[in-house]
Write a protein that binds this DNA or RNA. Structure first.
Length: 362
DNA sequence: GTCTCGGTGGACATGGTTCC
DNA sequence: GGAACCATGTCCACCGAGAC
């Protein structure tokens, strides 16, 4: 357990219902409440750090903070240099040596994985034993057994293993390796709705000149001033619905952006516009941690009729984007730098300050 | 002409939630 | 309990530009 784990009280025992869905909304809410109990004050200036401490992770293949797809970030490829720059910048921001950054981020996932491990240990003895009972005594392989991996382990460590470990020890080791690697696949679930939850948790802890109501994953028609959809029409949900007196902000939170998701932005907005019921403006905001210049540029420049599609395009920290592209000469990177400079791509801090009613930098 | 590299986007895997 | 849907990252193929 790292120092930060101890500081944040990770020894709390997870309730059964939370452990049953370690990555579900209930357990996320429980873990977030625990994190913020001891995480210190939340301000617009440090909000991005809380998001990174909770959600950002280390790419296992590069051992660097993740800022782009793993296959593009392998040593020798262009995003490896950018990942190094990002890792270096973040380590400095957190006042850490680069090797220690891993201990200070990814808190939510690491805690959820602990709860998942609890479930696996306690849950296997019941259903697992029942399922295997008809095949008992017939030499069926155990889950996680991997003869090829076992052979690699034996071959690599042959000179250091005397005597050679028993087969069941090697099998136990391969099972642990498989479990460790498969956990990474579960991260997607946490980064998805977890990003919305973390933003909401931060908003709950800030003060606003005009009181702010925050709703996550709310049906559009449950926000004030929007019609119900037609009976045969699917209910439209909003990642984050914010209400300040009569002003409504519909925010879409995407940790990263893909082309297919870009298409959704326009169709979502068209639905919001069509179902708007009171003839008043609403804000449409994109909050992201995307680093790809082309995707950020597209989000900044996308238009509907005669206006930008998004009222604000918000990046967790545009300074990190500048660091990543500091040596890039491409048209896309130049466009993104220009969008940061002219205020089209704003920081999470800036957006929170706008919501607080202090539109100047704070 | 061939190779390498960066950019792009479709297909897919995984797991949570909702609905029936 | 299962199907459908939604979220994400990864895998993979393709394309175009530039170097040789």
């Amino acid at each position: 357990m790292s120092d930060s784990d101890q500081a944040l009280g990770s020894s709390d025992k997870a309730p059964k219902e939370a452990v049953a869905r370690a990555f579900g909304a209930g357990n996320r809410a429980r873990l977030l409440a625990r994190y913020f109990e001891t995480a210190g004050p939340v301000t617009p200036a440090n909000a991005w750090q809380h998001v990174y401490r909770l959600l950002l992770w280390i790419d296992r293949t590069t051992a660097l903070a993740h800022c782009y797809e793993s296959d593009k970030a392998q040593p020798g490829r262009s995003w490896y240099a950018r990942s190094l720059a990002f890792h270096d910048w973040l380590s400095q921001e957190f006042d850490l040596v680069p090797a220690k950054l891993a201990d200070e981020i990814d808190w939510l996932f690491r805690q959820a994985v602990k709860d998942l491990a609890t479930r696996l240990i306690t849950g296997r003895s019941e259903s697992y034993e029942r399922q295997r009972e008809p095949y008992a005594g017939r030499s069926f392989p155990e889950p996680g057994e991997d003869p090829e991996l076992a052979a690699i382990i034996r071959e690599t460590l042959r000179g250091w293993l005397n005597p050679e470990p028993p087969a069941e020890v090697i099998a136990s080791l391969t099972r642990r390796i498989h479990t460790h690697l498969s956990q990474e696949n579960k991260r997607k679930n946490l980064v998805g709705e977890g990003f919305e939850d973390v933003i909401a948790a931060i908003l709950f802890r800030l003060n606003f000149n005009i009181p702010l109501e925050v709703k996550t994953r709310i049906a559009l028609h449950d926000l004030p001033g929007f019609h119900q959809p037609a009976p045969n029409e699917k209910i439209k949900k909003v990642d984050l619905g914010l209400i300040q007196e009569k002003y409504r902000t519909l925010a879409t939170a995407k940790w990263s952006i893909r082309a297919d998701r870009e298409e959704q932005f326009m169709s979502d907005f068209q639905t919001y516009e069509r179902l708007e019921a009171v003839g008043q403006d609403f804000a449409y905001v994109l909050i992201t941690n995307e680093f790809d210049a082309a995707r950020l540029r597209a989000a900044c420049e996308r238009r509907r009729q005669n206006a930008p599609l998004f009222t604000h395009v918000v990046h967790l920290n545009p300074a990190a984007v500048n660091v990543v592209y500091r040596e890039a000469q491409s048209e896309g990177s130049a466009a993104v730098r220009a969008h940061i400079e002219n205020g089209r791509l704003i920081s999470f801090q800036k957006w929170l300050s706008i919501l607080q009613g202090a539109s100047s930098d704070s």
